[in-house]
């Protein structure tokens, strides 16, 4: 399976959306921490994908998730913002000597410390946009902010678990 071919990515995206509808949306801890599995797909897109394609994928993936959660447009906006930030975050975290070709932004390939900074910052951006757009008020700022933070932790753990269980160890 070559993760670089577009049809495979498309099927994978659909799988992630269904997984989010079926499983992710049901994983809510203490009414505060929500799980958004599909963010894992957006984080895992190859480095070579250009900024415009990233944003389009983020938008349409979000739209797909929106359909299942009756939150029309909210996930689409969050996905777009997250993917808009991704090239910048990758740039800031660029290791010395650049990134070899044929490498994916995954935990195994980039190492724990790199991946923690990369994934946590992008998931946090995604969740902050998501929860504040959903609330659309700062009246419950602390509540909304706590939800975003707690969900970031849970989503990160879910993304890592999926990566370690379903993605192959060797390079693709």
């Amino acid at each position: 399976m070559n993760l670089r071919s577009a049809p495979i990515q498309f099927v994978l995206a659909l799988l992630y959306i269904v997984a989010q509808a079926y499983l992710g949306s049901q994983l809510v801890l203490f009414e505060t921490a929500f799980t958004f599995l599909h963010v894992g797909f957006l984080l895992m897109l190859p480095f070579e994908v250009g900024p415009i394609a990233l944003m389009l994928v983020g938008f349409f993936m979000g739209l797909g998730v929106d359909v299942f959660s009756d939150t029309l447009g909210i996930h689409a906006v969050a996905g777009t913002v997250m993917m808009f930030m991704r090239p910048g975050v990758v740039n800031i975290l660029m290791p010395q000597g650049g990134i070899e070709s044929g490498i994916l932004p995954s935990l195994r390939m980039m190492g724990l410390s790199w991946y923690l900074r990369y994934a946590l910052s992008l998931i946090l951006v995604h969740h902050l946009v998501l929860f504040f757009l959903e609330a659309f008020t700062f009246r419950y700022f602390l509540h909304t902010f706590t939800q975003a933070l707690a969900s970031t932790v849970i989503t990160f753990m879910a993304v890592v678990i999926i990566q370690l269980s379903f993605y192959r160890k060797k390079r693709i």
């Binding site: 029309l72 447009g73 689409a76 808009f84």
Partner: peptide, 19 residues
């Protein structure tokens, strides 16, 4: 890419608030 971002963002906001 900035313009694409703004375009997608406005479509998204339209969906959220007007659609």
């Amino acid at each position: 890419s900035l313009f694409t971002f703004l375009l997608l963002l406005s479509i998204g906001f339209f969906l959220v608030f007007r659609f």
